[in-house]
Nucleic acid binder design. Structure first.
Lengths: 236, 236
DNA sequence: ACCTGAACACCGTTCAAGT
DNA sequence: ACCTGAACACCGTTCAAGT
């Protein structure tokens, strides 16, 4: 069928390198999720044996650190090109735009939150990202204390994501009808009321149930507005 | 040395059950973290073979679902005993107390956030927790729309945790002195300034760097205060 | 310097077999 | 009904050996 020539002619294969390994790792995670990222699969994609990887990276942990940093670099490239005025009251728009731009990068790499949650603190690129964010707040007149609190309050939202912990659609059980729905309304009266209200209000939204982007921005603005109020109060 | 009698006399061993399996799983995670929780280790702790577990649970995924639900039950037992007035403006204190009580349970099970982030939405107990939280907001006069937004805005904070994504102490490199510190101050001027300010202000805090409980409450109150303002505005 | 084969110590899980 | 032994298909990783 196909001519399997690649393995036998030409310059055999581009030599491995730490950079090529990490680039392949990002691609695998993008395509198949974090579960697809194994040392053996990684080597296969590079046309090498799993053991060859260990010449370029110490272990899998270093691969995960590496791809976290790689996405951090991608984020910084995007947000550093933004150049929004940040003096005084403009800090809020500057921070908002920066965070939403970072979020757009994350949406291309849905596996990133899981990796960031365990090792983002170690990444030089993520540290750089937070440093610049802190700079915008300082431009806006934040004291170090308030800026420090602000970073903690934002948490992962500063990087553009929030765990979608609450997805009620999954809780109903799916298949259950009739009796089961009545039982649910009794056990979870408030959630049932919410569900009824939402599906009545906007039947089309039942599928996704919640507009994630809208909810993300609601929570972000709630925090930014609250921080802005504290900033004004402290600088008066 | 020791008399190894347990295996040979008495009622041999308590029979396995789904409940005993889950209880042992929680204990293992509490003691050794989520990484220590393997089917083989779980069986060993119960004095059985790994394969015996599959008679009581379908697979490891069900074990993880089960321990998430078990902690959810533990949380509900604590918060249901609270009984704080929640009518009108009192909703905020009621929600606040409830969330901080949930947090106390989580502090006893540090592995829980990692499990919740992947499967809390499926847990009947966690659903029940959110239903009651939603009920408090309804008592306070929240519309379903605002309450819905509020749950998303709180995210995992509703359950008492926030990812500690930003731990600058890890980023410095630890060992580096002199030149490396100067280099860091140049690359991360704002974080360096923050670090200097904090360690000057309160030298004792350098060890833990941030008071997690204090930061958690700051972020929580920022959200609750903002939500309360929206509630007042909408109900006027 | 760069890559590999064979091997080790782990996983979760299946399945036929025991009591 | 409840439990188990042997075995399978995976992991990450080491180490001596190849070019």
């Amino acid at each position: 069928m196909h001519v399997a020539a690649d393995a036998e002619v030409g310059p055999a294969r581009a030599p491995l390198s730490r950079d090529r390994v990490l680039r392949a790792a990002v691609r695998i995670a993008d395509d198949g999720g974090l579960g697809a990222l194994t040392m053996r699969r990684l080597a296969e994609d590079l046309g090498a044996e799993a053991m060859s990887l260990y010449y370029h990276v110490a272990n899998k942990d270093e691969v995960l650190d590496g791809i976290a940093d790689a996405v951090g670099r991608e984020i910084n490239e995007v947000v550093d090109a933004l150049d929004v005025p940040s003096a005084g009251p403009q800090w809020k728009q500057a921070v908002r735009r920066r965070i939403l731009a970072a979020r757009e990068v994350l949406l291309r790499h849905p596996w990133v939150p899981a990796v960031f949650e365990t090792r983002a603190a170690m990444s030089p690129e993520i540290l750089r990202y937070h440093d610049r964010l802190l700079g915008l707040m300082r431009d806006g007149g934040f004291s170090y204390d308030l800026a420090h609190h602000a970073l903690h309050a934002l948490g992962s939202r500063a990087l553009g994501f929030s765990q979608e912990l609450f997805t009620p659609a999954a809780g109903g059980g799916g298949a259950g009808d009739g009796d089961e729905l009545a039982d649910l309304a009794e056990r979870l009266p408030n959630l049932a009321g919410l569900l009824e209200h939402i599906s009545h209000d906007d039947p089309g939204s039942t599928l996704g149930w919640c507009d994630d982007q809208e909810e993300f921005e609601f929570g972000l603005d709630l925090l930014l507005d609250g921080l802005d109020r504290l900033r004004e109060r402290s600088s008066s």
